[in-house]
């Protein structure tokens, strides 16, 4: 059993400390504390981070040279691109849009007023499976299409606990980078969506996603009731055969001041919808918290930070729970 200290949080959660926009992030205090933690453990995370940065900047330089030579072809610049993300794409800042259309949208549109996030309090979750049920009902999903899925994992005491897993809405989404046709994109509120009218169904994104958060439309025998609106990336119902679907964060709900279906359906109030811009998070029990303070006070972590995906879903761990231990437990 490992109790998470603040220092440990720093090592578990580089996401919180590697953001360039420290001042605008959670709060100043957190920033200082984690920086101090970094200084104490230079060999642990600092060294790794440094060499990775150096490697990436070298890689970036090489990629830049290649881009010049190849007259604009961003040859192998995927990781370098990822490294450049926080500047233009920090999760509290403006214009988080990446993917197709990012360039032409950014200049003409007003900066988004929201940057959506989610907090899941694992100490509150009792594994009742209400969230996947609510999600599937709202999106007319088949039983195996668990956009929100509750995994049963083992904690450090050998007890089981439940891990609800939506799409992490990564700021550096592997699924986006590997899509050969830009069908996956990240809209300006930081939500990663799929254009099912463009998806060719190669499933490269499913291979790339470290969270198994993508689901394919395998079968044509899914029936939908008459629906008032056409399918959009934000609300892909009815889904299109032979394309990939995933959690949309119910971004339509959020923009209309509603909770996402999973958060609304959670009887325990374990799921909070949050906004990094206004720094607020709300759950189904009506509890409203200051997001940055809530994350800081509860030592919130992201899942699989080593994947460098920078998720916008944070987990608050219950007693004895350790997501890092479960990441490698597949055997």
């Amino acid at each position: 059993m490992r109790k998470l200290s603040r220092n440990k949080q720093a090592s578990v959660e580089p996401n919180l400390i590697t953001q360039d926009s420290c001042a605008s992030s959670l709060d100043g205090q957190n920033c200082q504390v984690t920086s101090a933690a970094l200084a104490k453990e230079p060999v642990d995370e600092g060294e790794k981070e440094f060499s990775r940065r150096r490697f990436l900047s070298m890689f970036g330089a090489a990629a830049g040279a290649a881009a010049v030579i190849g007259s604009g072809i961003e040859l192998l610049s995927y990781r370098a691109y990822a490294q450049g993300l926080p500047k233009t794409n920090n999760w509290s800042g403006d214009g988080g849009m990446t993917g197709s259309g990012a360039a032409d949208m950014a200049s003409t549109e007003a900066p988004p007023t929201h940057q959506w996030a989610m907090v899941i309090d694992l100490g509150m979750c009792n594994g009742c499976q209400s969230c996947p049920a609510a999600c599937q009902k709202a999106h007319y999903l088949t039983p195996d299409q668990t956009w929100m899925k509750v995994f049963t994992l083992t904690d450090n005491d050998g007890q089981t606990y439940s891990l609800p897993r939506p799409c992490m809405q990564c700021e550096n989404p592997p699924c986006l980078h590997v899509c050969p046709v830009h069908a996956t994109f990240r809209q300006d509120q930081g939500v990663v969506l799929v254009n099912q009218d463009r998806c060719i169904g190669c499933r490269m994104c499913m291979a790339a996603c470290p969270y198994e958060a993508r689901y394919f439309n395998w079968n044509s025998n899914v029936s939908y009731p008459p629906l008032p609106v056409a399918s959009t990336p934000e609300f892909p119902v009815p889904q299109k055969l032979g394309t990939v679907g995933k959690c949309t964060f119910c971004v339509g709900n959020l923009n209309h001041g509603l909770l996402s279906e999973c958060a609304a359906g959670c009887p325990m109030g374990a799921i909070y919808n949050g906004d990094l811009k206004t720094d607020v998070a709300v759950n189904s029990l009506g509890s409203t918290v200051k997001l940055s303070k809530f994350l800081y006070d509860n030592n919130a972590v992201t899942y699989k930070p080593e994947q460098n995906t920078h998720p916008r879903v944070w987990y608050i761990l219950g007693h004895g729970q350790d997501l890092a231990a479960n990441a490698a437990s597949a055997s």
Binding site: Y78, C179, V181, G201, C202, M204, N217, G242, T243, V244
Partner: peptide, 23 residues
């Protein structure tokens, strides 16, 4: 047959994403 939407195969050439291994 591997693709879910083989009729959209041409898109690989039109909406080129050079960071995709599949390209």
């Amino acid at each position: 047959p591997h693709l879910g939407r083989p009729e959209r195969f041409w898109e690989i050439l039109v909406y080129v994403n050079t960071s995709s291994p599949l390209f």
